[in-house]
């Protein structure tokens, strides 16, 4: 049973030609074949404030798209919406659509379990489950009903290598995952989401707790991973954003201010607010 690669929903009712009705003035890129289209997305939490305001955003395949901006801008909210993890939060209002491969993942008919297998996420704090390293990695497979040991072993090796931590842990797979260092744990978390062979990987400040060396390792593996995956990253600093971004979106107070090619936004931003932030004048 290869549940995690099958389609979320049978047909594809998606208008790929979906045209933004109110394109942000600064929005430059119109992608021809995006992986994800966020269309007029607005989200409010139970405290009443609108955390995302009418976001339009197209996210390309095989690239790192960076969402950055000052705290409370709604980056995490957008990220969690893409795999419906925000269902767990007390969200009171969701408007708009998020299309993934032409399927509106916000529709109630969607199989969220399959969606989450297709869209992996890594959080700011490395959260390893209180299990062994191996059990952490195969956890998602077990949930999906995959019991085949050889498939497990292959998946573990492949994803640990992809997360650049294979060499460090290959001899201690049956030790508790908490015995690893924070940086190692975070790469275990990355590997754990790769085991399910997702198509999209969401990373929410994945290196915020890590030392520069571990950070470098994670960034390096992201560069390799983007060959095969769609990567959406919330960086923990503007510097990191500038280092890894193929595309970058600047969020401020729930609004998407500017979205363009990474090189441009950090060298020659169009919006003055982006410029202020990039040059460290606020936030």
């Amino acid at each position: 049973m290869n549940a995690f690669n099958s389609d979320l929903n049978e047909p594809s009712p998606v208008p790929m030609e979906v045209k933004p009705r109110a394109l942000n003035a600064s929005m430059e890129i119109v992608l021809t074949d995006p992986k994800i289209i966020v269309e007029h997305l607005s989200i409010s939490y139970s405290d009443g404030t609108e955390s995302l305001k009418d976001i339009y955003l197209a996210i390309p395949k095989n690239a790192i798209t960076v969402l950055f901006g000052p705290a409370g801008g709604g980056k995490s909210t957008l990220l969690r919406t893409i795999n419906r993890l925000n269902d767990l939060a007390d969200v009171v209002k969701v408007q708009g659509h998020v299309w993934l491969d032409g399927v509106d993942i916000l529709s109630p008919e969607i199989d969220v379990i399959k969606l989450r297998r297709k869209v992996g996420i890594v959080f700011a704090r490395p959260v390893v489950l209180p299990l062994t390293i191996r059990q952490n990695l195969t956890y998602g497979l077990e949930l999906a009903g995959q019991k085949d040991r050889t498939i497990h072993a292959d998946a573990v090796e492949r994803s640990l290598k992809a997360a650049a931590i294979w060499d460090e842990v290959k001899d201690r797979l049956d030790e508790p995952a908490v015995s690893l260092s924070g940086g190692q744990q975070q790469r275990i978390c990355l590997a754990r989401s790769l085991v399910l062979e997702p198509e999209v990987i969401l990373l929410d400040e994945p290196t915020s707790g890590l030392d520069p060396i571990s950070t470098g390792k994670v960034e390096a593996s992201l560069q390799t991973l983007k060959e095969n995956y769609t990567i959406v990253l919330v960086p923990h600093s503007v510097q990191q954003a500038a280092r890894v971004a193929d595309y970058a979106a600047f969020f401020l107070g729930g609004e998407l201010i500017e979205y363009t090619i990474g090189k441009q936004i950090f060298t020659n931003p169009l919006d003055s607010r982006t410029e202020d932030y990039v040059e460290g004048r606020f936030g």
Binding site: S76, R80, L85, N86, L88, A89, F123, A124, R125, V127, D204
Partner: peptide, 8 residues
Amino acid sequence: KRTERILS
């Protein structure tokens, strides 16, 4: 209420 928010 659980005080801890979803990891962000």
